[in-house]
Design a protein around this nucleic acid. Structure first.
Lengths: 232, 232
DNA sequence: ACCTGAACACCGTTCAAGT
DNA sequence: ACCTGAACACCGTTCAAGT
């Protein structure tokens, strides 16, 4: 019984930038982005923290890299969406792509914040936006309006909106838990919540339907753009 | 010549939560949010890092606090906006308030990212949104549509959009600096940029007008909401 | 060529101790 | 009541050294 064999150390597949980035996505998926440290990531790939620097410049480079990995995943999903043959073609196609992108991002809840923290631009994100531009070109939009449209959509084009606050409190109780003095300063919020409580007494918790709200905002923008298209 | 006097140690104004938060805003304004460390902040107020914990729970509490400070600043600016007497009243009023909020945020470039990183809700932010709701109520909107509207506007209601990428590269050259293989994969982006270069040869750098783009997106949303109001 | 151990500078935070 | 010094655990990163 050879000692070496007994140790059971599987011949480690060598590290690479790609393997590091994939492991980083796994770590973030499992424990959130704040759990993604160089030491934790090294554990994940079965190496020491310092080994990572051979394949990756630094942590910023890793963050840039995982954004690109997720964006590539989004592109794959977007390409699988088949183009509608009838109806408002550019709009239906753009809508479907964006919702496909959203589905990918829902699997990586940490990703939106990292996307927004990047200063470098991900090539895969560029490719995604380029595809959206293509749909709008086919629909007859000018580059000028397309440019405005991309700004107006912003991160929504990639399938996410960063919520500043959830009106009814995401999981916490709303009006009931609010101090009285505070309620006085927020008559409209209180009014809205009591109307909801009246209409649907069970809905205080988890009231906002993120998906429905996302689609509402998306359609508001796409419909506005469509109107501009028809006027041009 | 008394030694004590000669030391020239001014009788330090005592620390307080408010003083700590105001100093934190100063530090972030001067050096960006990443320069805001407990030790640096302590320097700013002329104390040791550990003293801060007497007035503030921890760093998260400071971040929650400075968001509230900025939001209060926004509320002051929003209240100074006088209500339009004619035209589309709710819309013009909302638009003016939002642009006033934006002006405040432009003075604190670090703030948007911190706003979005908060999990606790700032009372001052709630007050701001409540005011916006009030305008919409006066315009005749139902709570239901108002709720959708707040989600659709998102951070734009507070005057900012977090740009994912600047189409023409914020300050860096665009098409010219792109590797040829990459350009092939981005036909629409390249097309757009060459059209711009043709129309206005000097505009490659700093091409996107953030303020104009912000207003374009804002009007797209407000106009869409106004249309819903008239249909109801 | 690829990986690692030891070490450094710098975080946020605790705790016992000072006035 | 308010502030501080020393210390701890944990970061990202460097560098010289191993195979």
């Amino acid at each position: 019984m050879g000692v070496r064999v007994e140790r059971g150390v599987a011949p480690r597949t060598p590290l690479s930038r790609e393997r590091v980035l994939r492991a980083a996505v796994s770590v973030a998926d499992a424990g959130g982005i704040e759990s993604l440290t160089m030491r934790r990531l090294a554990d994940e790939v079965g190496a020491e923290a310092m080994s990572l620097y051979y394949h990756v410049a630094n942590k910023e480079d890793i963050l840039d890299g995982i954004v690109d990995v997720i964006a590539a995943e989004i592109n794959e999903a977007a390409e699988r969406v088949r183009r509608p043959a009838k109806g408002n073609r550019w709009k239906n196609a753009a809508r479907a792509r964006i919702l496909a992108a959203r589905e990918v991002l829902l699997l990586h809840p940490w990703a939106p914040a990292v996307f927004e923290s990047r200063t470098a631009i991900s090539p895969a994100v560029l490719r995604y936006y380029d595809g959206l531009m293509g749909l709008m070109r086919e629909g007859g939009f000018s580059y000028d309006v397309i440019h405005h449209a991309l700004h107006a959509l912003g991160s929504r084009a990639l399938g996410f909106t960063q919520e500043l606050f959830t009106p009814a409190g995401g999981g916490g109780g709303p009006a009931a838990e609010m101090p009285a003095e505070m309620a006085e300063a927020l008559p409209n919020l209180v009014g809205m919540m009591s109307e909801i409580a009246h209409d649907d007494p069970d809905s205080t918790l988890g009231w906002c339907d993120d998906q429905a709200e996302f689609e509402f905002g998306l359609d508001l923008l796409l419909d506005g753009l469509e109107r501009m298209r028809r006027q041009a």
